[in-house]
């Protein structure tokens, strides 16, 4: 085949090769995802539909949808509690993190890096040790409790440890850096001239913040709230160490199902349910937060 056609065909082949390059580059990442996300997810999904038990001959795949019914039915209150704890921790973390990130980004000056380091510094200690430290801080005989009792903030028999508040405080503390860093990153990127422009266009400092700074930092807020809420929802360490008999979260239940009851199908079903609920919540949140943050003025106009 030495006809001119041969040459003609080589050109599209080169183009084809060029078009294939992005897929080659995507390859390793896709394989990684497939191996370590899709495949385990598939087996987890399969497992969640099995029945039986380890002691009576193992598990068998039987389309056991009732695992999901049980997951939702038996542990509904702990789902609600998990999302309540995680949601409260997210809101409190946001209220603490935003002013902190703002101060570092706009008032940090040459201390910026040192302050950011201080935010991340707790990470140099293990998650568990940090949580255990809180156990000591909030302990019944701790100065914190006695001070609060003296000030009348806490009743005489009152306690901090092994309460909802302690778990929420622990979650807030442990996930705070995940809130601070994205907010800081988005604030840091804001061109100060935009804020000056707002001031120039008859906005007081406060109005400029609400109308310009806050909407422009919305991506950081959205990222920060997700990075806090998602892991907090599935957390079990804080409830384990800082909670009492009525503070168990869904993570504790999954842990107990896996390790103590070795009821792998139920644990898998519960994990899947948790994942689905979080996905739906996040999806709704992004739709809502995305439009809210970006359409602030339009919303105002509609009033």
């Amino acid at each position: 085949m030495t006809s001119p056609k041969g040459r003609d065909r080589s050109a599209p082949r080169g183009a084809l090769r060029r078009r294939a390059i992005p897929y080659f580059l995507l390859g390793p990442g896709l394989i990684w995802l497939l191996l370590f996300f899709v495949v385990p997810l598939y087996f987890m999904g399969r497992l969640s539909l099995e029945s039986g038990s380890l002691e009576t001959g193992g598990f068998e795949f039987t389309w056991e949808w009732s695992n999901y019914g049980h997951a939702l039915g038996d542990y509904q209150d702990r789902f609600v509690r998990s999302f309540f704890f995680a949601g409260s921790a997210t809101v409190i973390a946001l209220l603490i993190a935003y002013p902190l990130a703002y101060a570092i980004a706009f008032r940090g000056g040459r201390w910026k890096n040192a302050l950011l380091f201080a935010v991340v510094a707790p990470f140099f200690t293990t998650y568990l040790i940090r949580t255990l430290a809180w156990q000591t801080i909030l302990s019944d005989d701790s100065p914190v409790v006695s001070t609060m009792q003296t000030l009348g903030l806490l009743g005489d028999g009152g306690r901090l440890l092994a309460t909802d508040g302690a778990v929420i405080a622990g979650l807030t503390y442990n996930f705070l850096p995940f809130m601070v860093l994205p907010i800081y990153a988005s604030l840091e990127r804001i061109d100060v001239r935009l804020i000056e422009a707002a001031r120039d266009l008859y906005s007081s400092a406060r109005t400029a913040f609400w109308r310009v700074t806050l909407p422009l930092s919305a991506p950081g807020v959205v990222a920060g709230t997700l990075l806090t809420f998602i892991p907090a929802s599935g957390d079990y360490i804080n409830a384990e160490f800082l909670g009492g008999t009525n503070q168990a979260m869904i993570g504790n239940v999954i842990q107990s199902l896996y390790l103590n009851l070795r009821d792998f199908p139920s644990a898998a079903a519960l994990s899947f349910t948790l994942m689905a609920v979080i996905l739906i919540a996040v999806f709704i949140y992004i739709r809502f937060a995305g439009s809210e943050a970006l359409m602030g003025e339009e919303a105002e106009k509609a009033k």
Binding site: F43, R46, G57, F59, Q255
Partner: peptide, 28 residues
């Protein structure tokens, strides 16, 4: 606790490893 967490991971991976037809089989 760390051990527990690692074990949870191990269990998950173990299940993947012997996933094939019916997950985990106990023995009579």
């Amino acid at each position: 606790r760390i051990a527990l967490a690692l074990i949870a991971l191990g269990v998950a991976l173990g299940m993947v490893a012997c996933g094939g037809d019916s997950g985990i089989e106990g023995s009579e």
